[in-house]
Design a protein around this nucleic acid. Sequence first.
DNA 1: CCTGGTGGTTCCATTATTTGAAACTTAGTC
DNA 2: GACTAAGTTTCAAATAATGGAACCACCAGG
Lengths: 262, 262
Amino acid sequence: MGAEGNQDGTVGKALDVLDMVAAAGKPVRFSDLLGTSIYPKATLYRFLQTLTHQGMLSHDPDHGTYALGVRLVRLAHAAWQQSSLAPLARPYLDDLAAITGETIHLAQMDMGQVLYVDKRNAARPVDMFSSAGKVGPAYCTGVGKAMLAWLPDDALKTVLSRQSFHRFTPHTYADPAALITELHAIRARGYAFDREEHEPGIICVAVPILTKAGRVIGAISLTSTTQRTTLAALEACADKIMETAGKIAAEAESWRFPEQHS
Amino acid sequence: MGAEGNQDGTVGKALDVLDMVAAAGKPVRFSDLLGTSIYPKATLYRFLQTLTHQGMLSHDPDHGTYALGVRLVRLAHAAWQQSSLAPLARPYLDDLAAITGETIHLAQMDMGQVLYVDKRNAARPVDMFSSAGKVGPAYCTGVGKAMLAWLPDDALKTVLSRQSFHRFTPHTYADPAALITELHAIRARGYAFDREEHEPGIICVAVPILTKAGRVIGAISLTSTTQRTTLAALEACADKIMETAGKIAAEAESWRFPEQHS
DNA sequence: CCTGGTGGTTCCATTATTTGAAACTTAGTC
DNA sequence: GACTAAGTTTCAAATAATGGAACCACCAGG
């Protein structure tokens, strides 16, 4: 990760640099970036200048480091509100959380990865961006598999090609063929399980959120630990989760497509 | 807002378009943007293409609308974590919230506006992006004034020139001169009040977060309503808030500048 | 006080990219 | 079927990005 050959004119390159800073996870010096970047010194420098000037990056002159800028936080607020399912799903997730008392995730697909856009946590209620905005693998999480299972074939192929298939636990599906079999089972069943495939001790039941037309637009999951409960017990909530997913889908449909003339 | 004459080469223009979509607050059609934009049809079109291809925008082909893309949410997660005070301030805010039981805001300055990066709410604990990422005016909020009061003169001048000085309530400082007098008082006192200057019935005490060198890096406020309490009662917490601000500043100092060799 | 080195910034002729008026293609109306 | 509005593509001219090399500032060691 870092020096992708990706292009889209100047804008694409600039965003590439932005990603690079994001990937670092901490403030980075010019020379650090120069190492991982495919761009020559002067070019990289100008990009950093521009991005900083635009508020997408912030530059600490005392330490000569660059970090992601606050303008991003502002934009993300708008993005989260206008193009994620989170705002309209909120009341339904609240209900589900109240009924089940378990941790709930709301996720969407982004670039072949699972992007968590909201969360309800029984134990620690406040979590903010620290959980919303997080990304995870698609092939070994409940929400990920739930979304993959309803993806059209061509899209699925693309997404699968981006998966790393790293074996996180003994239960991880570590190759595409096995995963595809699992996806068929999920689709037949209507919901997905995570049988400690990503983290030991963590299990979940996940349900896709589908439009009337059958397109996946997201997924919800109910998560717990093997110490607290069993898969079978979680499965008992499947109906409730699917009901919630249905309500969110309906809401999304009417929100995203408000004008349906006579 | 919308058609700024702002420039920074191609990248700046593209980000300008991004802002435009964000400003709309809802999915927009090509022609909507064309109206507010200073760019000709073909140019705007190509920017939208590029941004969409990059995942910064999402395009709904059924309705021909563009909205902010989820990639932003992902970037913001990183931005929030690596360049806002929120992650390191969290435990201290939790403490302060526990002690006082009131609503707490953590804010930073961005482009002359107040950007809220975290929040603790007594009543409704979960709030996510809906509050983090929000922006507000600087000249008539507690956190805003607290930060302005410690800004160096030249920076203050720039920021003041960007304020709208809209009179939200009868108590709003509606012109720079009056505000500057208030800022001096705040600096002398060590903390700022919001005397229903932004919203009727909402009052707060706010404290700046300052580095050892005296630079403002943010502010915290304790907010309440005139129905529940009085300014004098809130002021009683001022010491506690300043203590919290001090701890956050110390933490920030050691986090942002970790390597201090022997 | 020089000297060598590293990290960062600026120059500028060359080159590739962006630009935008106009032509074109849909999709929707009367 | 002709008319209009909305969105998409073309292409020569204009502009902006490129990156090698020179430059600057700071530091450590001699």
